[in-house]
Design a protein around this nucleic acid. Structure first.
Lengths: 355, 355
DNA sequence: TTTAGCACTCAATCTCCCTGAGTGCTAAAT
DNA sequence: ATTTAGCACTCAGGGAGATTGAGTGCTAAA
C-alpha cells in the first residue's frame, strides 16, 4: 500500500497548509497552489483515497480535510522537508546561548525559557542523573567566628555549599581534622549508606568540631537527594494559549496541569534509551491527557553521566520541522558547551577546543 | 460625606458577595440575606446613592451592582473583616513551609510556588539586594589534578562556588598564596572596582597559580552582578485562567505578559519604602495593563540587608482578606526562618529559639 | 485518467424574539 | 421623614429558525 508521488505531494501540502493556518484544507485551495498541476476534482479523488487510508480526516462532511495522527506520523517520518535555520536565526540562537551561567540548574532553567521563546510553545528542560551519586569530597572553611562554609563536591561534578552559623570555637586544625574524617568515612557512599552507627562513629572521631556533624550530614543527604532527583523546569506555559486549538481554556489547563509534575516524572524512564530528536504525535503520548498534543524532545549530554532533555509541547498541528531544527541546534550546542573545558575569558588561547 | 452604618453594611455585603460569585448583586438577593432588616426597595435607594458616590457600578441598566475600584478601596481600608486562618490552614501552611532548601534562591522559587498554590492565583516572589555587594572572602581548593573549586563568599552571605578545570600543576601552597592575594586585593570591593590595573597587579603577584586569575575574576564579577540584580520568580500563571474574568484568553495574556519582566523590574523601587502588606486595587497599579487587576504584596526580611517580596496577582474581585492573611503568615514565617541561626536537626536544643 | 458540472450537506453566522432579573419611580403605609 | 409595595421599563442572554458558502461526492463528457 504505497502512496503515489502525487498522493505524497498532496498529503504534504495538506499538512503544511494545516500547520500554517489551523484550518481544514479544501480541494480548491490545494488546486490553486503553484505546483499543483491538476484540477480540484482530481485532488478530491485523491483526498478521498487518502481519507480511506486513514491519513486524513474530515471534521464534518462539508469541511476540508485535516491530517489524522497517522497522517502526521507519515509526514514527520517521510514527507517533512528539513527546516533550514536562517542566518538570522542561528545568530539569535547563538546570542541566546551566550549564557555565562555557572550552575547547571540555572543553565537548564534558562534554557527552558529560551526554548519556549524561540519555539513559541511551552518548553520543558530537565536533567537526570545516571547512576547513584556519592560525595567525592568535603571541605570546611571558617568564614568568621561562629560561621563556617561547608563545601560538598558530588560525583556528578556539582559543587554545593552551605553557610553554617553555629556558636562554636575551634581552630583551623580542628576543621581540618573534621574534614579528613568526613572524607575518609562518608565519601564514595550513597546517601542511604549513612547508617546511624557510621554517623555515630564519625561524630566520635570528629574532635572539637563534632557539633557540626549533624548539620553537615543533614545538608549532605539533602544535597544528594536533590541532585539525584531529576530537576524539571517548565516555561512558557502561557504560550499554549496562543495556539488556536487551545483557545478553550479548559483544554489548555488539562494539558498544562499534566505538565506540572505527573507525566514528567515518568519521562526519565524513556530518557536513557532514546537518542536524537524524538517526536511523539498525539495519541502516541503516554499520558491520556496529551492525546491531542504532540511532544518534540531531544536529549543532550552533560558531563559525568548526567543527561539533559529539552522538549516542547504543542498542538498536534505544530511546525515539526522548525521546532525540530531549533531544538536540535540547542541540544547540540548545549552538549558542546558542557563538555568544553574551562576556556579563558581573555582572547589568549592555550589549548584550542573546537571552534 | 460619611457613609451611614447601613450603607457600609450594604457595601460590605455587596463586595463580599461579588467576591464569592463574580456576579453582579441585586437588591433582592441582598434583602434576602440573613442580617438585612429592610426591604429590597430601601436597599435599592441606598444602592442608588452608593452608585452616585462612585462606590458601585452597574455593568448595564438591568443588572445588579458591582463594586467600583473606589468601592474596593473603601472595603479594603475600612470594611473588610480580618480573615482568620483556620487551624487546618495554618497546619498546611506550616507543612508547606517546612522546606529544607539550602540556597536562598531555591527557597524563593519554592515559596512563589507555594504562595500560588495556597492562594490559587499567580504569585511573584523576588529578592533584592540593598546596597552594593562585595566579596568577603575567597577560597580555592584543589579537587583533583587539573580541577579546582573556587568558593566566593559575598557580603550578603551568599556563598557561591565554581568547579574550574584547567590543566595546571600547582601545590597546595600555591593555591594558598593565590587565595591570600585575592583576599587582600579584591575583597570589600564592588565589582566595578576591578580595574585592569588592579587585576594586572593581582596576576603578577599570584605566583604559579596565576593562570586561574582570569577565570576567577570572571566568575566573581558575574556572581556579584547576579546577586545584585533582583531575582524574580513567577509561578502559577495558569491559575489566572481559573478566574472567570480571565476566561477570555487575550485578557489573561495581556496581564501575564507584563508579569514576565517589565513591570517587575520597576517594583524594586517601591520595594524599599513600603512596609507590611500592601494592596493595589486595579487602576492604582503602575502598569496600564494591570488596570483591571489587583496586586497584594508583602515584604519580608532576609539576613544582611537583603529583602524579599512576595505577592499575588488577581482580578480586582479577589478575596483580599484571605489572600492578605495567608501572605502575611508566609512573610512572617519566612522572615523568622531566615533570621534564625542554624538549628540542630536532632531534637536536642542548645539555644532555644522562639518556637 | 482527468476534468467540468451539479446537487447536496452542514457548520457557522445572523436575525428575531422572548424571558427574566433587576432597576427607578411613585404612591401608600408606618 | 422613612420605609415599603407596586408597576412600568430596560436590556443581556439564549433559543429558534433562516441564510450563507465552503466543500464534498458523483456523474458524464473530454
Amino acid at each position: 500500500m504505497e502512496l503515489t508521488a502525487r498522493q505524497k505531494k498532496i498529503l504534504r501540502a495538506i499538512v503544511d497548509s494545516y500547520i500554517q493556518t489551523a484550518e481544514p484544507v479544501g480541494s480548491k485551495t490545494l488546486a490553486a497552489m503553484a505546483d499543483m498541476d491538476c484540477s480540484s476534482a482530481t485532488i478530491r479523488n485523491e483526498m478521498a483515497e487518502l481519507t480511506q487510508m486513514g491519513l486524513l480526516e474530515q471534521p464534518h462532511t462539508s469541511a476540508g480535510r485535516i491530517p489524522s495522527p497517522a497522517g502526521y506520523r507519515l509526514y514527520v517520518d517521510e514527507l517533512m522537508q528539513d527546516y533550514r535555520l536562517s542566518v538570522d536565526e542561528t545568530q539569535s540562537l547563538n546570542q541566546a546561548m551566550e549564557l555565562k551561567m555557572q550552575e547547571v540548574d540555572k543553565v537548564i532553567s534558562q534554557v527552558s525559557k529560551m526554548v519556549s521563546k524561540m519555539t513559541n510553545l511551552p518548553a520543558v528542560a530537565m536533567t537526570a542523573a545516571a547512576g547513584t551519586l556519592t560525595v567525592q569530597r568535603f571541605d570546611i572553611l571558617q568564614a568568621s567566628a561562629g560561621s563556617f562554609i561547608l563545601v560538598v563536591m558530588v560525583s556528578n561534578e556539582a559543587v554545593r555549599n552551605k553557610l553554617i552559623k553555629l556558636p562554636l570555637n575551634c581552630t583551623e586544625q580542628d576543621l581540618k581534622l573534621l574534614a579528613a574524617v568526613l572524607n575518609a568515612s562518608l565519601t564514595e557512599l550513597p546517601a542511604d549508606g549513612f547508617t546511624p552507627e557510621l554517623l555515630q562513629r564519625v561524630t566520635r572521631s570528629a574532635g572539637p568540631a563534632a557539633s557540626l556533624v549533624p548539620v553537615i550530614v543533614d545538608f549532605t543527604t539533602h544535597v544528594l537527594q536533590e541532585e539525584q532527583k531529576s530537576q524539571v523546569y517548565v516555561s512558557g506555559q502561557m504560550k499554549l494559549l496562543g495556539q488556536p486549538e487551545y483557545r478553550d481554556v479548559e483544554k489548555a489547563q488539562e494539558v498544562l496541569s499534566t505538565l506540572d509534575s505527573d507525566a514528567l516524572s515518568n519521562l526519565p524512564a524513556t530518557l536513557s534509551d532514546t537518542t536524537g530528536t524524538q517526536i511523539l504525535v498525539g495519541p502516541e503520548n503516554i499520558a491520556r491527557e496529551l492525546r491531542d498534543t504532540s511532544v518534540v524532545m531531544t536529549r543532550f549530554d552533560i558531563g559525568d553521566g548526567m543527561q539533559g532533555l529539552i522538549g516542547v509541547v504543542g498542538p498536534t498541528r505544530m511546525d515539526y520541522a522548525q521546532v525540530t531544527a531549533r531544538l536540535s541546534y540547542f541540544a547540540e550546542n548545549l552538549g558542546r558547551m558542557f563538555s568544553k573545558p574551562e576556556l579563558p575569558p581573555s582572547p589568549e588561547q592555550k589549548e584550542p577546543g573546537d571552534e
